[in-house]
Design a protein around this nucleic acid. Sequence first.
DNA 1: CATCAAAATGAAAACGTGTTCACTTACAAT
DNA 2: ATTGTAAGTGAACACGTTTTCATTTTGATG
Lengths: 345, 345
Amino acid sequence: MSERNDRKSARATADLVAREANVSRVAVSRAFNPNASLKPEKRDRILQIARELNYTPDMAARSLVTRRSHLVGMIVPDVCSPWESQEIDTLTTALQAEGFATLLFKAKADFSMDHTLLTYMRGFNPDSVIAFTENVEPDVLTGFLDRAVPIYVIYDDGAQFADKSSSLYDRLLVRQRDGIEQAIALLQGYGVRRVAYLGGKRQSLANRERERMITEILAERGMQPPTVIDSDYTYDTAYRATLDLFRVEDGADAIFAANDVGAFGAIDALRHDLGLSVPGDVKVVGFDDIPQSHWKAYNLTTVRIDLEDRVRALVRLILRRLRNPEDGPLTETLGTRLVVRGTVG
Amino acid sequence: MSERNDRKSARATADLVAREANVSRVAVSRAFNPNASLKPEKRDRILQIARELNYTPDMAARSLVTRRSHLVGMIVPDVCSPWESQEIDTLTTALQAEGFATLLFKAKADFSMDHTLLTYMRGFNPDSVIAFTENVEPDVLTGFLDRAVPIYVIYDDGAQFADKSSSLYDRLLVRQRDGIEQAIALLQGYGVRRVAYLGGKRQSLANRERERMITEILAERGMQPPTVIDSDYTYDTAYRATLDLFRVEDGADAIFAANDVGAFGAIDALRHDLGLSVPGDVKVVGFDDIPQSHWKAYNLTTVRIDLEDRVRALVRLILRRLRNPEDGPLTETLGTRLVVRGTVG
DNA sequence: CATCAAAATGAAAACGTGTTCACTTACAAT
DNA sequence: ATTGTAAGTGAACACGTTTTCATTTTGATG
């Protein structure tokens, strides 16, 4: 019976707490706002009663007048990807500590950032939005700029973006050249002549950047241009693409994968289907350094983008913009470096 | 210049749209509420103008009067775990299609569902909450029942919970006995005598259930009780625990892991550190059937809990409760079955 | 004791929406 | 032409909070 009543009883409001504590509703509001001035003993008493009544300020009502929703929107094509799930996890933890909650949306698998989705999302008034899709068009985001909602686009190097309107947004710049150079130097040191690039998604900006950069560096070092095989960042596609490379095409001495998961697919195809040894017959290098990469079954040599650094930079950007929205856009830069393990030696 | 102004310009409100379209603000509200009655041509005109003005109803304001936030809270200890990330991904997609957004919170790694976190989360007024931590205490949730916010606790079999107050909540029941029986039958068929159970987190209810059930079934079949080794669902811990099992303890013929990732750790320890063959010397069975389990490097035989079924059942429960909150609690049941691959043959 | 600045207080006005409730219009049936 | 009914309309209120601003209380200073 009482359970039933409890269940139906309305949520405690500031008014109820005020009545119970013999103060005005304003005092209750102040008690929950740390920088408001209120007699300490009074605040304590209010908080005490609030706790007894299980009262929490209603975020919806608060955000209506504050213009701050304390929500950070994240748009993700695939939560299951180890790389993205790591990012979500770490970001959510960091933001949660700062009092922000994560609002998660799933984008279409083909990376197309739907306008409907953005509009829908805007209804929730996120204080900030993080787009994981690197290929998002700047003009799609433009409609978002009202009410000073800042957008952070994550992509790598992004020479293409440099002169476009995206300079309006805060950016995270990943300098992947260093890591790629180290990797190719290592491969060349082992006498590799024919490198294949196992690509990621066609639309992915990071993917195109990586392909361009690998081609460039190979040329600089007097090596022949890479054989490029298409894939989509997934294990299965990478597996099949690798089979094609060796059965239809004429193989390679080394495979440079656009991401670690793709490298796993390549390794398994080589070892379990083609009967080739890694790193004996073919060397493999990945990209990202996800936790699985140190698993003994793969023990992957890979270009590392430090997650901790990345998230720290991201949180720094977000909090800065939330605190003073009028500041000009800022760019944070991140480096990469090769982590040497067992798939090249 | 105009960019600057756009940026600062306030977001379009229903009032603005109404003024622009020469209708009352109420008409605008109705235009966005499909079941409200409004002359079709009028609605079209309003929607047209709304689109031009980039207007979307403010969810905060709407939820204030509707008592529906269209938010579904999810509490997750580790987004990176393949099992959980899959669940988040599929659930978010399904709920998004129904007009709900995912509000993501990270619980402490030790599974302790913090009361502070729940209180904080309640401030956002989620229409529903999904707790991935199976060990959450019912009384912690009780404070949540006001305002008819339903809670869905996910756990397996949960005999312990049957008679407790948790019968207040809708539940998802996973019948893992079938799958476990099939697995043990298969092992016995291959002449396995000594089975080790590589556990998950101590606090995890699912883990304790699995241990109990394995012990029970082994006894029923006249086999000796399992050696139980502690772990925490992670690769690294499982790896070390397996080393201990064979170096400190006296080994086993088969390892039954509490989850697939743990099984990977065991396999790698056996193959790359202990010099044992899988399945030649030791057979391995996992739990979950995550996508990685079919990767050739592991090719794991495992007890499958079908994700699609699971999410469908979950969404069914959530939507039902959202539509008529007064209904009594319901329990959905899910089966399990063994997926035979290469680690037992 | 008087005076004044500073701190604490509460009434009222927002914030942007959905909903009620009378009211008007439109249209078919008598 | 008249009635009856349904559908369409808009003014006013409600949702729970923060913020302003004028007012009261406090506490220290002369």
